[in-house]
Simulated scan of single mutants.
Amino acid sequence: MPAPETIVQQQLDAYNAKDLDAWLTTYAPDAAQFELHGGLLASGHAEMRARMAARFAEPDLHAQLLSRIVMGQIVTDYELITRNFPEGKGTIEMLCIYEIAGDAIARATFALGEKRLLDA
């Protein structure tokens, strides 16, 4: 069974490759994604696929890993995400908390920082 940080790294690599199928294989079929202290973003592969398809279509999408903490089955990544926002290209800080069960992500919780638009 792969180590929790290996599963999360595979998820990050697939995200940056914009490989939706590979990205989904890192999540359990019944996995759920949440906002920190907030609502459900997506539950299960079908909802996660629909949620991420538009994101993966962004030409500049990229997640830069700034730091990672591993504590047992919990992996916390601090990332700087480059996105194509409606207002233009920019970055946003993201805290990603992944809970691993078996060989997949069972739950992911995200906290978003401040959006910063890049100068044209």
Rank of each mutant, 00 (worst) to 15 (best):
G44S: 04
P29D: 02
G90S: 10
D21E: 14
Q64D: 15
H37W: 12
E58P: 03
L36I: 15
R51C: 04
A120D: 15
A32R: 07
A106E: 00
D30P: 00
H45A: 03
L24D: 07
L118F: 08
E114D: 15
G39M: 12
G72L: 08
A104R: 09
I100D: 02
A63H: 10
Y98I: 01
L65D: 05
F56N: 05
L24K: 07
H37R: 08
T109I: 09
D77N: 09
P2Q: 06
Q73M: 08
L12K: 11
E87Y: 03
A50C: 06
G88M: 01
Q64P: 06
P2F: 01
Q73L: 11
M48D: 03
Q73R: 09
Q9P: 10
G72V: 11
I105V: 15
A14I: 01
G102A: 01
T91E: 14
C96V: 14
S67P: 02
L20F: 02
L40C: 14
S43P: 04
Q73Y: 10
L65T: 09
F56T: 01
M94I: 13
I97R: 09
A31T: 02
H62Q: 14
F85T: 14
M71N: 12
Y78I: 13
T91K: 13
Q9C: 03
A101K: 11
R68H: 06
V75L: 08
I92W: 00
F110P: 06
A14Y: 05
M48W: 05
G44C: 05
G113H: 03
Q9Y: 12
L80T: 12
L117P: 02
A104D: 09
Y98K: 01
Q73N: 15
V70W: 04
R49C: 06
D19N: 13
Y78F: 12
R55Q: 14
I92E: 08
T91Q: 14
G38M: 04
F85H: 06
M1F: 07
G88H: 10
E47W: 12
E114S: 14
A3D: 12
L61T: 06
A111D: 05
K18R: 14
Q9V: 07
P29K: 06
T91P: 00
G44P: 03
E99T: 02
E99N: 05
M94L: 15
A31P: 06
D13G: 09
T76M: 13
P29I: 01
F110W: 12
T25K: 03
T91W: 08
L40S: 15
L41N: 02
L41A: 07
T26H: 00
A111Q: 12
L66V: 10
I7E: 02
A106D: 01
R116S: 15
V75I: 14
P86D: 12
A53G: 09
R55I: 09
A3Y: 05
A17M: 11
D103Y: 00
D119R: 13
Q10Y: 04
R83Y: 10
F85W: 07
E5H: 11
D19A: 10
L118Y: 08
V8I: 11
